[in-house]
Amino acid sequence: MNGPVEQGMVGVGLRSPHISQFVEQKPDIGWLEVHSENYFNPASTARQQLRHLAGHYPISCHGIGLSLGSADPLSREHLVQLKQLVDDIEPFAVSDHLSWSSVDGQFFNDLLPLPYTEDALAHFCHKVGQVQDFLGRQMLIENPSSYLSFAHSEIPEWEFLREVQQRTGCGLLLDLNNIYVSAFNHGFDCNNYIATLDPSTVKEIHLAGFTVKQFDDGEIWIDTHSKPISEPVWQLYRQWLQVHGNIPTLIEWDLDIPELPVLLAEADKATTIMMQEAKDGQISIP
């Protein structure tokens, strides 16, 4: 396996249209992130390709199927497959979402928001603890994008997320695009959200693009990961670097996936911003 990811490295999400190019060409990029569930079958071609790439790039395993906020119990089959993948690939990070996706074993194709209550907090923390104990390692929890909220929520999302980290010892995966999208949809302040979190617990940052949907009664922003990163999200990233320093950063692009050079150009932009902040005396690059 390649060495651990450095703080100043920028990576990209590995998606199926680009796998062959990465296997054959080994483009210059700091690290790769995969959706864990796509690689659960140890005999699949995808798993074999990932094993190969893990010899050349640090890998992060980003899950979308644990459904940590659901009332359903954790799937032991899912946990076993995840642990086998983690033991096989030895990723530098394992992550999932502050969300839920299932009811009575039936899964939705979405990451749905939680009611931010004390009961939900205790339940979610219990689930995170179970996963960390099973894997024998820390996991990262990503803040969600959302388009509705529960009327009976009693805790702001940023405080809920901070409390999850403090109670479980998990790390945080801070998605700046999710914060920006949700801030518009729900009317909160991005900077207040970020300032509430302990920066030492943030182990990874995600950057992505979003889509504006217009309706008769207004507009809503959707976290589609289908466009270049917006300038306001780049600005949030600059602010993070200026205040807290460099951190492993991922470029996500999941729909309308462009040619690989377009994706790598977004990664180059993140690297350029990081280097510019370093040049201005704000941070250091390893």
Rank of each mutant, 00 (worst) to 15 (best):
P144T: 02
L111M: 07
S95Y: 03
R15Y: 15
V86A: 07
K213I: 08
S99D: 04
V202T: 08
I257H: 02
L114T: 03
G69H: 01
E159A: 10
D87R: 07
H97D: 00
F150H: 07
D256W: 08
N246P: 06
E159S: 10
I285R: 13
D189S: 11
S36G: 04
F188R: 03
D217F: 13
Q81S: 15
V128S: 01
I257D: 04
L176G: 00
R15P: 08
H152N: 14
L66R: 03
I257M: 14
F160W: 08
I155W: 01
Q81P: 08
L176H: 02
K26Y: 08
D88P: 07
Q138F: 08
D87C: 11
S20F: 15
F210W: 12
S20N: 12
E204W: 02
T196C: 11
E37L: 12
S95C: 03
L14S: 14
G105K: 07
L112P: 00
N2R: 15
C125F: 08
V131T: 08
D175F: 02
K269Y: 11
A54W: 05
I283T: 11
E231G: 06
K227E: 14
L32E: 03
S101E: 05
E277V: 12
S182K: 02
Q214S: 10
K279G: 14
Q21E: 09
L121D: 03
W253D: 02
H186N: 12
I141F: 00
G63Q: 06
P58H: 14
E231M: 09
S95P: 03
E24S: 07
P199D: 05
V94R: 01
Q166W: 09
S145Q: 02
N246H: 13
F150E: 12
T249Y: 02
A93S: 14
M9I: 06
Y57K: 03
S146Y: 07
A278W: 05
S95T: 08
T168H: 01
P27A: 06
Y147F: 11
R238T: 09
D216R: 09
G8I: 09
S149Q: 13
Q7M: 10
P91Y: 05
L263G: 03
L135K: 04
V5R: 00
V10P: 03
D72W: 11
F107D: 14
Q282N: 15
W240S: 01
E159H: 09
A54I: 05
N185H: 09
G171M: 03
S145H: 02
R137A: 13
A151Q: 09
G105D: 09
C61F: 15
I257C: 13
I285C: 13
H244F: 04
Q235C: 12
F40G: 04
L68P: 01
L32M: 10
I273V: 09
Q130N: 08
Q49L: 13
P261L: 08
K279I: 15
R51Q: 13
F124T: 07
